[in-house]
Design a protein around this nucleic acid. Structure first.
Lengths: 195, 195
DNA sequence: TTTGTAAGTGAATGAACATTCATTTATATT
DNA sequence: AATATAAATGAATGTTCATTCACTTACAAA
């Protein structure tokens, strides 16, 4: 039998995300995608059941890659400061390396597609929950709901990362993240979180 | 001449946002919208030049309404605590009153449409910048870039608001915002921001 | 009461859409 | 070398799309 061309699948995946990032979900048509990826429209249907399946599979793949990078060298026994810093660095690294993945990811997360039955649940969940609980037990973290922890610890982080990826922020000029600024912000966030 | 039916315009606006929130930008077609709004497809083109114009006008209208509510009773001379608390309360009120507007807004902000030439620049910008500068001058706020202030002060807030609007958060169960939790979070954020 | 005009319409148009299908191609196995 | 099989294709299908147009309707001004 004929062997699958890995390049074709990768090309479809990459071009699909590029199209969505540049033109939105309504800018993605199967025929345009086929042309951009250099394959026949029918080829896409070898890899994906239909358009919906393409979108949800793309999201699940990105989510898996992202989780893998975010959890690198992480374990929930780490101190609050060490663990949070590691997560920020891991996430930042991924986002800077694959900005298109991240922008696709964010667009998807804010769309109704996120409620699709085929979307996998986040695998950090357990890890993150344990990390929070351990830090509270150790007295490094004030007692709070995990969602409030998440909002303060990561909501602020993602907001600043999105500024970094824009050419002009809502405040006027451009904004570039640096290691120093990231450390400054970590200290601020830690002050908020400590008991 | 015949007078414009305000109800028609409002109906088109509301149904368009509902459709986008429920089915995404690719779920909005002019014919489906016309049917849902109870008008002829051609009527939509009396109010909006084309589909693109409909989307950008919707966003601009929501942004204006949101800015109006957010700035209610606000002035940039307010103390950090008072000003931030007022802004959170104002924004929360708007979001709870018009969740569909907010979800449309967030979906739009995370899509490439946000770079469209007809999208108006935020009018809080000046107000917000002055508020930050005043608070720094008064010594209530550590010296920092406005984007970092924004991320810590509002990024965390919006994250938690989005949790509130989801039925299940990434941490497993549902999460409901309350006045108490909002005050708890405000104190945390203030700790982070203070010099 | 007549008239001018913008609001509002349903049906039509051609383009673009997602998906399928009959056929060809490449390769691993025999 | 022959065969089996999944990969890959281009053209075709029927549907839905955004937009337009010839027409009707409602109302303010005359």
């Amino acid at each position: 039998m004929r062997i699958r061309d890995e390049n074709k699948e990768a090309s479809i995946r990459e071009k699909a995300m590029e199209m969505i990032v540049n033109e939105g979900f309504d800018g993605l048509s199967m025929q345009k995608l086929a042309k951009a990826a250099g394959v026949s429209p029918a080829t896409i249907y070898i890899y994906y059941k239909n358009r919906e399946d393409l979108l949800t599979q793309l999201y699940n793949e990105v989510q898996e890659k992202f989780a893998e990078v975010a959890l690198r060298r992480f374990n929930p026994e780490l101190s609050l400061e060490e663990g949070l810093w590691l997560q920020w660095k891991n996430r930042m690294k991924f986002i800077l390396e694959y900005p298109v993945y991240f922008q696709f990811f964010e667009q998807f997360r804010n769309s109704p597609l996120i409620n699709h039955k085929d979307i996998q649940k986040n695998e950090f969940r357990e890890n993150m929950k344990n990390f929070v609980l351990n830090a509270i037990k150790r007295g490094e973290l004030a007692k709070m709901e995990p969602e409030i922890f998440w909002a303060v610890a990561y909501g602020s982080f993602y907001t600043v990362v999105k500024f970094h990826l824009q050419e002009k922020t809502m405040m006027g000029g451009p904004f570039k993240m640096t290691d120093t600024k990231m450390k400054q912000m970590l200290q601020m966030v830690l002050k908020a979180l400590k008991p």
